[in-house]
Computed example of a mutant assay.
Amino acid sequence: MLVDSHCHLDFPDLAEDLDEVVARARQAGVGHMLTICTHVTRFERVLAVARRFEGVDCTVGIHPHEAGKEPETSAETLMALADDPKVIGFGETGLDFFYEHSPRDAQERSFRQHIRAARESGLPVIVHTRDADTDTVRILGEEQAEGAFPGLIHCFSSSAQLAERAVELGMMVSISGIVTFKKAEALRETVRALPLDHLLVETDAPYLAPVPKRGKRNEPAFTAYTAATVAEVKGVSEAELARATTDNFFRLFTKARRPAAVAAAE
């Protein structure tokens, strides 16, 4: 079984044929999906999708692009929304200095509130970082000094130094379809060096479809292509990669319910 640890099933690109999208994921061996919240004001829509399907959970959070537009949201509010059994983490949150759709100070304040929610609840924080490695490392380090919290860097495409620091802080690193791109050799080198027990796989659907689907709408079924490339890079079988990344997901997201068939097989 594979887990798509980061997708956006509530986005309009997937909504028109969502039943078929989920069915294709099952057929491709993707037994669990995590659909990610980007606007706290749209959280109910995200939660409704998670409630609709067995084996789909969700998060609550504010994407850094939206940090200056969404209501400023406290850790207490995030934790209250996470009371639902289908809500298993916070985010995505973090820093994006490439587009800077929101002011940097608003991004940082929001990021820290999500981290505080993770620390106080024990649920992981899902971190988005782009062109912001230095500040991401600074904030993660400062917040870890206040007390440990679980989390992951999603859709990883940053420096090897950020990956190493994330592992030092006990975080997971999630790999998207970018790893299959022809010009992503530096990312493949980073993946090769990362410990297998710190890796997850994801689609970030409907974006970033992997080779050989690049240019098309991405969907959770395509997790299999990313996983195959990661397995090749790591020098392990696809079955071993699937077992490891699935184990890593359920070890990190302790609130998620592992499918009965997989749990029984172990």
Rank of each mutant, 00 (worst) to 15 (best):
G170E: 05
Q161L: 11
V3M: 04
G215N: 14
L208I: 06
I178S: 03
K216G: 14
A117T: 07
A132P: 07
L78F: 10
V230W: 04
A264K: 15
P85A: 13
G61D: 06
R188D: 02
F149T: 01
R258F: 06
R243W: 13
S237D: 09
V60N: 08
L123Y: 09
N218L: 05
H6S: 00
E232L: 13
E92L: 00
G91I: 00
L196I: 10
E76C: 13
C155P: 00
R104K: 09
R51C: 12
R217Y: 05
F111Q: 00
S102V: 01
V87G: 05
A224E: 07
A160N: 10
D83F: 14
V211M: 09
A67K: 01
T229L: 15
T77H: 14
A244Y: 06
F90L: 00
L34M: 13
L81C: 12
L9C: 09
I153P: 00
A261Y: 12
G68E: 08
I153Y: 00
I115W: 01
N248A: 11
V30N: 02
L47F: 12
P71I: 12
P150G: 06
A209C: 11
P71D: 12
T38G: 02
E72Y: 14
A231I: 11
S74A: 12
V40D: 00
E44D: 14
E66R: 08
E164T: 13
P220H: 05
V201S: 02
R52M: 13
Y99T: 12
S237Y: 10
S159Y: 07
C37L: 07
H8F: 02
H114A: 07
L200M: 13
F181T: 11
V40F: 00
K213L: 15
F11S: 05
G89S: 12
V127C: 09
G61Y: 03
A231E: 02
P150V: 03
K86C: 12
D105W: 05
F250S: 03
C58L: 14
A132L: 09
F181E: 08
V201W: 01
H39T: 00
T254G: 15
G235Y: 13
F222M: 13
D96Q: 08
A166R: 01
D17G: 10
L208A: 02
P210Q: 09
C58F: 07
T180C: 08
C58N: 07
V167I: 09
